[in-house]
Computed example of a mutant assay.
Amino acid sequence: MGLIKGNFSFMQFAVEGRLPQAFNTFIHNRIKGNAFREAQNAAEEKRMGWVSLTDILDADFENANYALGDYLIFSMRIDRKLVSPKLMKIRLMEEQKRFLAEHKQTRIGKAMNEGIKEKVKLALMAKNDPVPSFYDVLWAVGQNKVYFSSLSDKVADDFVDLFKKTFSLGLKRLLPQEHPLALANKTDVNAASDDLAFIGREFLTWLWFKSEERNGAIALSKTEEVELHLLKRIALEAGEGEYSQGVVCSGLHAELKEGKEAIRQGKKVKEAVIKL
C-alpha cells in the first residue's frame, strides 16, 4: 500500500548533494521534464517517469500538487511489457522450424539463433500492452531524507537512477540496522552479552569448585545429588578484550594443577569439558 491508504512499507534514503538556491523552480522544471510519457515504440520493454500521487493520470503537475509544506510527494510509474516464457518458447520453436525449412538447413548457428530469438521477443512485446506499476515517494526536504514505497532492490535501483537523472542528486540507502535507535540497542545487547559472559565464567568456576569439593558429587536438594567432573580440557581467562590473558589445561582425569594455580591468580573458567 502507499502513502494515501493503508500501511506504508518503505525504503529510506539519505539525499546526497547540495540543493539549488531556487529550489522550488528547480523542482518544478525537473519533475515536469522527467514526468511519465507514453512509449512511442511499441516494442519498448520498460518506461518510467513521475506522476501525481493523487491522480496517476496527471503527469503535467500544472498546479504543483506535489508540494505539501516541507514535503514533496509524488509517484514513480514504471510500465513493463512482459512476455510469457512458455509463449516465447513456442513462438521461438515455430520461427526456428520455419527458418530451417526456408533455408533447407538442419541446424541454426548461435548468432543467427540469437537474432531469431530477439526478433520473436520484439514481435511479442509489440502485441502486448504494458503493465503499469506505481510507487509512492515522500521527500522530507528539511530532513534530507526520501521514503520510497517498495522493498524490491530492483525497483529501488530504477528509482535511484531516475531520481539522480531528474534532480542531479544522489541517494544513499539507509538500512534499518544503521538507524540510531538500532545502534543504541546494539550497544545495549553487547553490554548484556558481556554481562552474560561474566556470569557464565563465574558459574563454571563455581561448578569446578563444587565438583572438587566432594569428589564430583554435587547436591541438588536434601535427597538428590549429581556427579559431575571437569576433564580433558579447561580454558581459563582473566581480563577483557585485548587485555585478556588466558591459559588452557588439558589431560584426561588429570589434576589440572596449572588450572588451579590460574584460579588462585584470579582467572575464571571460560570453557570446559563436563562429564555427568
Rank of each mutant, 00 (worst) to 15 (best):
L72W: 08
M125W: 05
F61D: 09
N128T: 13
L122D: 12
S152P: 05
L92H: 10
S149I: 05
S133I: 06
K46N: 12
L138F: 07
W50Q: 05
K97C: 01
N144K: 10
D55A: 12
W139M: 04
R80A: 08
L100W: 06
A140W: 01
I90C: 00
F148P: 01
I108Q: 03
I78F: 02
I116L: 15
V83Q: 08
V83H: 08
D70G: 10
G115W: 04
V131R: 11
P130H: 11
W139R: 03
N65M: 09
L82P: 00
F134R: 09
G142L: 06
A59I: 00
K46A: 13
R91F: 06
A59P: 00
A101C: 00
L124G: 04
P132G: 07
W139P: 01
R98H: 07
L92T: 14
I73Q: 12
G49R: 00
L122F: 04
Y71S: 05
D79V: 04
A101Q: 13
F99M: 07
A123D: 14
M93I: 00
N113T: 07
I90P: 00
Q143M: 07
K46V: 15
F74R: 03
A140N: 13
E95I: 03
E95M: 11
I90M: 04
V120Q: 03
S84C: 11
I108G: 01
L122K: 15
V141T: 10
E95H: 07
M76N: 01
V83A: 09
D60S: 14
K46W: 01
N128A: 15
L87C: 01
K89H: 09
A111S: 13
R98A: 14
E62M: 08
E94I: 02
E118P: 00
E114A: 14
G49Q: 03
G115T: 06
V137I: 15
A111L: 11
E62F: 09
M125L: 13
V83C: 06
A123I: 04
M48R: 13
F148T: 08
F99V: 05
P132F: 10
T106G: 15
M112S: 03
L100M: 12
S150T: 15
G69Q: 06
R47L: 12
Q96I: 09
S133W: 07
A101G: 04
A126L: 10
L138G: 04
K145F: 08
D58F: 11
S133V: 06
A101F: 02
D60N: 14
D60T: 15
K145I: 08
G142A: 06
L122N: 13
E62C: 07
T54E: 13
I73F: 11
K127D: 14
A64N: 15
D129F: 15
K104N: 14
M125C: 07
N128L: 09
N128H: 14
A67Y: 09
K117T: 10
A64E: 15
K127N: 10
K89W: 01
R77P: 02
K86V: 10
D70L: 04
A126F: 09
E114F: 04
E62Q: 14
V141A: 08
D60W: 03
N144F: 00
D129S: 15
R77L: 05
